[in-house]
Amino acid sequence: MSDIDVKMTINGQEIEAKADPRTLLIHFLREDQNLTGAHIGCDTSHCGACTVDIDGKSVKSCTVFVGQANGSDITTIEGIAHPDGTLHAIQEAFRQNHGLQCGFCTPGMITRAYRLLQENPTPTETEIRYGISGNLCRCTGYQNIVKSIMAASRELSLKEAAE
């Protein structure tokens, strides 16, 4: 099949590319765009390691063809830190609260938390647990991930209040 032209914004940058229409978005991001932060952990849309943000929604990028993302605005883990290089409050909270171990789920987890805290800036513990239930972690038992997201939520609310 002949390649299709795709155009999208990734982490604030507009890109244009040619791609085989059956390319999964996760492969397009990782292999064509060299954004290897999002990972592949399953074949069945269960693990969430591939989570990216598309037009304000958390999406498992292994379940989307690149063509379906045509024209969209994508944020990946590489685009979450501040432009000056300092960590986003969620990234910092994961570091402070030991919210990661092997780090394989982390990009998807943080990208999901990034959206969750916009959907619900002050979630309860239960809301966080449900909110990240599409993202699996094999190392941490989630306890410190939940703690990290709680801490980030507090930090972000304080910041908001100050502004």
Binding site: T76, A81, G103, I110
Partner: peptide, 14 residues
């Protein structure tokens, strides 16, 4: 953690 939280780990598939 600085690497892993920013997606700059280097796993084999990378």
């Amino acid at each position: 953690d600085a690497r892993f939280t920013q997606g700059t780990g280097n796993y084999v598939d990378d």
